[in-house]
Write a protein that binds this DNA or RNA. Structure first.
Lengths: 166, 166
DNA sequence: GTCATGTCGATCCATCTGGATCAATCTTTC
DNA sequence: GAAAGATTGATCCAGATGGATCGACATGAC
């Protein structure tokens, strides 16, 4: 095993009962600390603003509530992110024809430009993060993670008694 | 592939260039939303307080700064979490004999009691989260994730130009 | 049409977060 | 032992977060 690159206490935690939760938390907390700082400093926006821009660019005309199905964040977080993107001129909204409550969202060309920059950087970060794995291992890891994501209890725990908010 | 349980937009994102980053973000954001709400509501403490308690119980006499190597969070976050745990009587500190600046931390019996409760719940949550995988797949997933965690660039990105803060 | 109920997205507010700074302590150098 | 520099952990403060609420609009029952 590749414990040697990790410090002693960390290796102990990753050998305990909660090793899986601890390990994925470690990876994501560590990665977020690095990535969020980069985005917040370089682009002066919260990470969720860039996530929302990504979704809007990828799915032109997407509604705010649909973004939540891609990035499981509270409703007000998405609302504020969109407000910021509009204020900066990265996103414009067209009113929905069928429902006056909905906002249909589109990236502006400036929004697309800045998103392309950030996406390019994210790709390099992704490559860096997964560099310890071979291409085959990456595929395998992705497939297994996909199974977890597709599980019914990721967003709605039975054992923790969660019900949806927002 | 098990895309069918995911909605159409999500499946599209998980087929794009940034699929790996998007997928692990999705899993962890989704899981955190559920778990954090449970801990914050049930125990009225931020998640990092329970993480710190876990570390202190597991490594009696640990110093505050060492907790950061297990849970990669900013220094002040850990400091506040420990303050809360002390105020609640879950943790006591003995002064270090060798260095007057250090706090050596120990869980009280009440701290151990409440931690045992939370750990039991976390174990059930872990089982729920990984239920879509077979035992063998879980092991394989864990091994691959461990390789990622042991990579040199998880906490210190070259491409994002990160340097350590805190 | 009216009223009750449901949904979409904005806003309020208490709390959390993290970068920066601070005081206290330790180490090194002379 | 005095001064400079490093390290530990607490605190400050501006900004982010998320649960709750609100207003606007939509739907359904009568």
């Amino acid at each position: 095993m590749s414990y040697m690159a990790l410090n002693e206490k960390l290796a102990t935690v990753f050998a305990g009962d909660l090793r899986e939760l601890m390990l994925i938390s470690y990876i994501v907390l560590g990665n977020n600390a690095v990535t969020n700082r980069f985005i917040e400093r370089g682009y002066e926006m919260p990470v969720h603003a860039w996530s929302s821009l990504y979704a809007i660019d990828r799915f032109p005309g997407i509604r705010a509530k649909e973004i939540r199905t891609i990035f499981p964040r509270p409703q007000n977080t998405i609302s504020r992110a969109i407000g910021l993107l509009e204020k900066r001129g990265y996103v414009r909204q067209g009113a929905s024809e069928s429902d006056g409550r909905e906002k249909r969202l589109f990236a502006t060309s400036e929004g697309q430009r800045i998103l392309a920059e950030m996406t390019a950087m994210s790709l390099r970060r992704q490559a860096e993060l997964f560099a310890p794995l071979t291409a085959e291992e990456r595929d395998r890891f992705f497939g297994l993670a996909l199974k977890i994501a597709a599980g019914q209890n990721l967003l709605h725990s039975v054992v923790l008694g969660s019900d949806d908010a927002g």
